[in-house]
């Protein structure tokens, strides 16, 4: 009896395990194939781009990179730096704001708490794209359009991140721990910075990654906000290469190489941050 009951779940488990694996594999191919395509296309010289097979590597990668870096005296680096400021700065600020608000919403009872939270939830339903033009008009009014702030500020308050931080804070910070801290005489500021925030780090890493990727890839907001090409992020900058006018030789190889190079930091960030993420989650689980 026992042997049978042992075997049955094992056999069923192997079969049942196959379907999710296959599904995940298909999902992975679906997501990674375009990346592979960009990588392959970035290695092709202009002559090879439209004349060789789609999945055949080309010979022009280093020429493409050199051309891209030489394009308009290395404006690519300026755009890359801008993207880093927008994505890094925006994600850090957004994480800080989300963590603090999420913590406050989860652990304090104050009048209007539910109203604020419900408004934020409502905010999740409004796509950021819809807000870009009204935001541009508002920023123009206060004289901040076409500045770094015009791209940074609208991305700091991100309802979904606050929602995530609240859920995370509610689960990760035991009320008893805060009570113990209060009894020991810690002020609210000290409680937040020394007790609550360290516990929220894995959640913050998640929020940071989400926001970093979202801002890194954001196109519409900077496209509308910025007029000065010296402040463009990579997305908008590469778009100017694509739309350089019908009467100009197209710069496909530079665009593809630029798109590929702008993916590299994201991949690197994910690989490094992910490790960090996992260790903290598991160290929490062991406790």
């Amino acid at each position: 009896m026992t042997t049978v009951s042992h075997r049955r779940p094992r056999g069923g488990g192997a079969l049942a395990g196959l379907a999710p694996t296959a599904l995940l594999l298909i999902g992975a191919i679906y997501c990674l194939f375009p990346v592979l395509w960009v990588l392959i296309a970035a290695t092709k010289s202009p002559a090879e781009l439209f004349s060789t097979s789609t999945l055949a590597f080309g010979t022009g990668f280093f020429d493409n990179v050199a051309d891209l870096f030489a394009y308009r005296d290395g404006v690519f680096w300026l755009w890359a730096g801008n993207t880093l400021i927008y994505a890094g700065g925006g994600a850090l600020l957004s994480t800080a704001v989300s963590a603090v608000s999420g913590y406050a919403l989860a652990k304090y009872r104050f009048p209007g708490r539910n109203l604020i939270f419900n408004l934020l939830i409502g905010g999740i339903l409004v796509p950021a794209v819809v807000l870009a033009i009204p935001q541009y008009l508002l920023f123009s009014k206060i004289g901040l359009a076409d500045s770094y702030w015009a791209v940074l500020l609208p991305q700091i308050l991100h309802p979904y991140s606050i929602y995530l931080a609240r859920i995370y804070a509610a689960a990760a910070i035991p009320d008893s721990l805060l009570e113990a801290g209060r009894i020991d005489g810690a002020g609210e500021w000290r409680l937040m910075s020394r007790v609550a925030m360290p516990l929220m780090v894995p959640g913050m890493v998640t929020i940071f990654l989400f926001q970093f990727v979202a801002i890194w890839n954001n196109f519409l907001l900077p496209f509308i906000m910025l007029g000065d090409d010296g402040k463009f992020p990579l997305t908008v900058g590469l778009f100017t290469l694509l739309q350089s006018g019908a009467n100009q030789p197209s710069l496909y190889n530079l665009i593809l190489t630029g798109a590929f190079l702008s993916l590299v930091p994201l991949i690197a960030l994910f690989l490094t941050m992910q490790r960090y993420w996992r260790t903290d989650l598991s160290s929490g689980a062991v406790k």
Binding site: R72, F223, G227, D228, D229, G230, V236, F239, T240, L242, Q243, S244, G245
Partner: peptide, 10 residues
């Protein structure tokens, strides 16, 4: 000069 993306979007 501020180089923009051309076309209808511009």
């Amino acid at each position: 000069v501020s180089k923009q993306a051309g076309g209808d979007d511009a």
